[in-house]
Design a binder for these strands. Sequence first.
DNA 1: AATAACACTGTTCATATTATCAGTATCCGT
DNA 2: ACGGATACTGATAATATGAACAGTGTTATT
Lengths: 204, 204
Amino acid sequence: MSSKLTDRQQQVLDCIRECIADTGMAPTRAEIADIMGFQSKNAASDHLRALERKGYIRLHSDRSRGIQLLDNAYWGEEELPIVGKVAAGVPIEAIENVERTVPVPQGLFKQRPTYLLKVQGDSMVDAGIFDGDLIAVRKSNVARSGEIVVARIDEEVTVKTLKLNKSSATLLPANEAYEPIKVPADQLVIEGIFVGLIRDPNSY
Amino acid sequence: MSSKLTDRQQQVLDCIRECIADTGMAPTRAEIADIMGFQSKNAASDHLRALERKGYIRLHSDRSRGIQLLDNAYWGEEELPIVGKVAAGVPIEAIENVERTVPVPQGLFKQRPTYLLKVQGDSMVDAGIFDGDLIAVRKSNVARSGEIVVARIDEEVTVKTLKLNKSSATLLPANEAYEPIKVPADQLVIEGIFVGLIRDPNSY
DNA sequence: AATAACACTGTTCATATTATCAGTATCCGT
DNA sequence: ACGGATACTGATAATATGAACAGTGTTATT
């Protein structure tokens, strides 16, 4: 992964993002210096080099405004990975689980999702979550009672409504054909919280 | 609105869009000329001026790569209107019905939606369409049997599964509490076809 | 038949922008 | 206590890019 940014570098990165969001163009060194209050354009150059080295941007040499944002927070939309079958014992976002990626605009959902999970099975049909639906999941290892969560039990990943009672947790399906699952609070591994749903009836 | 583009101008506009989608940067005059096969940069300049005059782009003078795309089809995503309550006798997309707009990336759904409709009522819960969900609708006045459609009956807009038998049509709810609606084929007005669903559990 | 918009080629010039070199000072890990 | 990353100032050279001017045909419109 890309290494951590210093405060100043983060500010410069934010400044670039803002520029692109506002005008659709990346800023020049001079513009960055202006906005950040540098006296020298080279201060901006230095930061850009640092941002590139750390993997946040790509610099196209000799091209004006040749700053390309990488990875996340692109232009108000993000490429989110679609996770299908999750192999046992493997982190949910591991590459082998990713089927493809889809651009999802920021702000489509109130809470920002981390990845999309392709639902398998019909245990949540009564909550309107069907087999094949994509659910938008925000990564988190805690959740409040009543929230729909992505949880791992015995290395299996499932989507259920979480109910917390005093010392134990219950994972509640939304389908009469399934039984609630009671889990000791210390054995429950929450992977994320359900923050949105996308369904495409025409997706093969 | 902006006036119509010539074929060539449309090609140049497409070329700009592609550039931005690929690299995040607008192209220079020289790059456009290269891609389009012009011998002269000025050919590109001419087209850009035409595109600006017609309201498709904004040119920032004296700034390199200072081409800003305007209005629609920005960067692979479209602003789709969210339609809430639909007033009787009014076209579904009429301005007074639009609550707000949301950017939806092209390709999120197999079929491209025309607008989003905020679902009211629970007549389709068994199909996983809940009160408050946004359904993506592709405008169409025909539909095949079995598809979920947006239809108008007596000036009321509803979402139902369409069943066509010989000479009559039935609009099938997906909730036992509701009755199927039988409509003479000539009285049925189909507004559009359900092509996708977006749910945000945190939307106020 | 005249006029304007379209669709270019080709050249020159001004300036916008990047690249690079030479410094200074602070902070951090070893 | 040392090297390296951070965080800048300041100046100059090289080049990328936009703007302007002078042309040539073609097509659409009045």
